[in-house]
Design a protein around this nucleic acid. Structure first.
Lengths: 159, 159
DNA sequence: TTGACGACCATAAGGTCCCATGTTATCCCA
DNA sequence: TGGGATAACATGGGACCTTATGGTCGTCAA
């Protein structure tokens, strides 16, 4: 598999270490990035993490704006400036810096959430709440799409 | 055959394993996806499952919305975040995670239901009830749309 | 020297692989 | 066409490996 999916809740040990779920490690290994690239999510109490695919996305976002523009400076500062590359130990674990733990409100357990090209790190309780909210949103949106699709089908479009 | 059709009810063994019906395995093999992609159905107590065809549908659903939009984030979280890629063992069996079993209310038996490009996994009792309800709905709709459908079929629409 | 950190080792639980068995469906040949 | 051989499939169980997690020891730096 080549994308991050599913979610896993794991505990930090006494030294603050936490295993990256094995399936995610497999994706990272395929992606070819050494370590774990991560930074605080812009509008959520979570940490974005990934490998080269995530880095490429960041870069695309920044290069959208012209050199020396205020927007570019702001993005560069906010994203690159707060990013960390975490070392992955021989057992596949990382240690989250205190700044990232504080941003996400993480104490002794974390939830990993696959989002395709990247994954997020949440405090388990907040993650459950966020997931419930997102699920509600999706249900509502899908209902909207449903009626549009139904109208479409009525013309005889088959699949 | 390249579509999931028919339904099968199979039992879970003591280790929680369940065979994927052989006809479905054949479809998955043709589809070329390694493993079984699945996630909790949004508005039913069931699990949606399939291969690349299902994954493509999910992706299409997500990419309908622009990057960085709230809608897209919600879809990504709710769909990728709750998806699982189950490993299929050498005998063609999978183990459903507890989260999926809980969502569908599955204990010791499950019903596989073919829906074309994907299939669903139900608790057998709930499936029977759902099927009865759907049959009633279809009967009513068919009666109501009978003349329109007949006219449509006359153009050569198959099936 | 002490404390933080990284490399290495240990272990229990769960997952995966492999082999075995009974039952059903399919095929083939008389 | 009938019946036996054969293959496919669902199911069961045991051995082994992976993973998550905990701990120890040495090293480097403040």
């Amino acid at each position: 598999m080549d994308r991050f999916v599913s979610n896993y809740t794991l505990r930090l040990d006494a030294k603050g270490r936490v295993s990256i779920p094995a399936p995610y490690r497999a994706v990272l290994a395929r992606d070819g990035y050494e370590g774990l690239y991560c930074y605080p999510a812009l509008d959520q109490p979570a940490v974005d993490a990934g490998g080269n695919a995530l880095l490429a996305e960041i870069e695309a976002l920044i290069t959208r704006y012209p050199h020396y523009s205020d927007e570019r400076d702001a993005f560069t500062l906010a994203l690159y400036g707060t990013s960390e590359t975490l070392k992955i130990d021989t057992e596949g674990r990382v240690i989250l810096p205190d700044t990232l733990k504080a941003h996400a409100g993480i104490a002794d357990a974390i939830s990993f959430v696959g989002l395709g090209h990247k994954f997020q790190i949440w405090e388990p309780g907040r993650f459950r709440a966020q997931l419930a909210e997102a699920t509600g949103t999706v249900r509502a949106l899908k209902k909207q799409l449903g009626s549009r699709v139904a109208a479409h089908e009525a013309h005889g479009a088959r699949e």
